[in-house]
Design a protein around this nucleic acid. Structure first.
Length: 320
DNA sequence: GGTAGACCTGGACGC
DNA sequence: GCGTCCAGGTCTACC
């Protein structure tokens, strides 16, 4: 099988950093715990290509097995898409800066959060994770790929903005189960496809965070939570996406009391101590609780019933 | 500026 | 198996 090599920063660990944010569990991503390998189709200039990304050790280059031989320009495209997705552009110096602000994560080395190869996919994944439980979010992303994605049946790409923009809202609702998000997703895709959303400006280091936030809030389907989440996906960690999980964390772990709105404000205030890396501190703290319940994230996989196979559930299955 | 209710789906629960 | 209730964030109307 043809393969490509991708260089990584010396502190990068695939199983830790690819499984750092929930998007590694959303289609078209597929994590294989037993092989510590990430499977996902990528859309390149000459068409889709199925990829299997693996690594032999910390700081070692990634080995990317591809379903077809790539031309030099396509290798460059693959490199830049994986760089965005796995945050390979977050330097070791930035990682150290975060660990200096919050030393709790220095030992494990956690700092990078997995995202999507494109901003458009991040926008759609954010909208499809609002006002819905996690299985619902997984279902929407799976069906978007199955119904609208290009590529082999076993590995369909995430639909592009152009493809999504051409759909009728009722079709999206009926076939992809996106519910009331149908029109908002089509509107978002239309804006993105015609270049009305300035990706360079949004991803530009010089653009003020508050301006980006205000802009995002004007987009269909994007409210305060979604805007803050997209900001962290853009590498801006100073705001917290305060959702029900944040409130639960505030009450159960940080011992906060009062109405949900009050607790949300208290949580945001609490994490301000971590400055520009506020969200990273919050997220890794939240993960400790998840992993205490379900085991390490890189061991998570889904059974044929679509349910998460946690260590506890695996033991229960074995007993049967 | 703050609040209430609708939006839609999947899971949990009771019968 | 069926019906009911609930959780989840955004959006709009209303005060």
């Amino acid at each position: 099988m043809p393969s490509v090599t991708v260089s990584v920063p010396r502190d990068f660990v695939l199983w830790r950093d690819a499984c750092s944010y929930g998007y590694f569990l959303l289609a078209p991503n597929q994590w294989i715990p037993s092989e510590k390998t990430l499977l996902r189709p990528l859309r390149l200039k000459n068409g889709p290509v199925a990829c299997a990304v693996s690594q032999t050790g910390k700081g070692k280059s990634l080995r990317v097995e591809t379903s077809r031989t790539l031309k030099a320009t396509e290798k460059g495209e693959l490199n830049s898409q994986l760089t965005r997705m796995l945050r390979l552009d977050m330097t070791t110096a930035q990682v150290n800066e975060f660990h200096k602000l919050d030393p709790r994560w220095k030992k494990t080395g956690e700092a990078r959060l997995c995202r999507s190869p494109t901003l458009f996919e991040d926008l759609v994944k954010t909208v499809t994770s609002c006002n819905v439980t996690w299985p619902g979010s997984r279902g929407m992303n799976r069906r978007l790929c199955e119904v609208l994605g290009e590529g082999a049946a076993s590995g369909k790409c995430f639909p592009t903005s152009q493809i999504l923009a051409k759909q009728r809202p009722a079709f999206l609702r009926g076939r992809c189960g996106v519910g009331y998000r149908d029109e908002r997703l089509v509107q978002l895709a239309k804006m993105y496809a015609k270049g009305a959303i300035d990706v360079r400006w949004l991803e530009g280091a010089a653009t003020p965070t508050e301006e980006i936030r205000e802009y995002l809030l004007e987009l269909p389907g994007i409210g305060p939570y979604a805007a803050a989440n997209i900001l962290q996906l853009l590498g801006r960690y100073e705001l917290l996406p305060c959702d029900s999980e944040a409130v639960r964390h505030g009450r159960e772990v940080l011992g906060m009391k009062g109405s949900s709105a009050r607790v949300a404000k208290q949580v945001a205030k609490h994490f301000e101590q971590y400055g520009k890396y506020c969200f990273l501190s919050y997220w890794f703290e939240l993960r400790v609780a998840y992993q205490a319940k379900h085991g390490p994230a890189h061991t998570w996989e889904y059974g044929q019933d679509g349910k998460l196979v946690t260590a506890a559930r695996a033991a229960a299955i074995r007993k049967k």
